[in-house]
Amino acid sequence: MLETRRHCYCCGNPAWRQARDEFADDMANLIDLANPTRFMRFSAALLPWLAGVSALLLAVGFYLAWFVAPPDYQQGETIRIMFVHVPAAWLAMMFYAMMAVSALGTLVWRHPLADVAQKAAAPIGACFALVCLVTGALWGKPMWGTYWVWDARLTSVLVLFLIYLGIIALWRVLDEPSRAGRAVAILTLVGFVNVPIIKFSVDWWNTLHQPASVFRMGGSTIDGSMLWPLLVLALGFTLFALTLHMAAMRAEIMRRRVRTLTILEAERLDRLAARAGSAPA
C-alpha cells in the first residue's frame, strides 16, 4: 500500500512525473505526425525501408511457397494458389476496415488526413479484392469443377469489390475533396456491414467455400509446412500494401496542394486582370 502511494504521481514522485511527461510527448508526436506536413517528411524517410522489407519478405515467402511447402494431400499443387489467394482476401477486408476507421475520422473528428487515407486505400483494397476473386476462380475450376458459384462467401466478396468500385467512382464524381470525403465516408460506413458478412458467411450459411482454417477457435488446421509460407507471404503483402498506401497518400496530399495553389493563382490573375481593367488609360 505504502509502495503504491509512493509511486502515485499526485504526490510528486519524480519517476511518475517523468513517465507522464514522456507519455505526453509521445501523444504530441503522434498528433504531429497526423499533420500533413509532418506526414510527408516522416513518410519520405520510411517509404524506402518499408518497400525494402516488403520486397525481402515477399521474396522469402515466394521461395517457401514454391520450393519448400509440399503439395497438399487433397489439392495437390493447386495449394500454391492459396498462398496468394488467402493474403489477398485478408487485405481486401483489412483495407476496407481501415477505410471505415478513416471514415469515422472524417465524420467525427474531421481529421485532415482521414479522407486522404480513405481515398488512397480504395484502389488498393479493390485490387486485392480482384486478386482474391480471380485466383479463387482459377482455384475453383480444377477443385470444384467451376469458376464461379453464387455461394455466400464468393458473392459477399464480389459485393465488396463492387462497393470499392462505387467508392472510387464517388471520389471521381465530386470535385471538392472535403464534400467528396464526407459522402464517401457515409457510403464506406454503410458498406462496412458487408465485412462481418464475408467473415462469417461460411458459418452462417451452407457454402461451397471451406470454413476458416487459419484464424479459428482451436487453432489453425493447416500444417506448419504450409502455414509458415502463408504467414510470411501475408506479412510481405501487408507491408507491400502499406507501402503503396503511404505512396498514394503522399500523392493525394500533393494533389490537394496543387489544387489549392492553382485556385490561389487563378484568383491572383483575376485580381490583376480586374485591376488592369479599372486602371485609368
Partner: peptide
C-alpha cells in the same frame, strides 16, 4: 502437374494486377 495452367495463370494475374497498381 495437370493443373499447372491454373497455378501459373493465378500468379500471372497477381503480377499483372499488382504491377499495374
Amino acid at each position: 502437374g495437370p493443373h499447372a495452367g491454373f497455378i501459373l495463370a493465378s500468379y500471372a494475374a497477381v503480377a499483372v494486377i499488382l504491377a499495374g497498381l
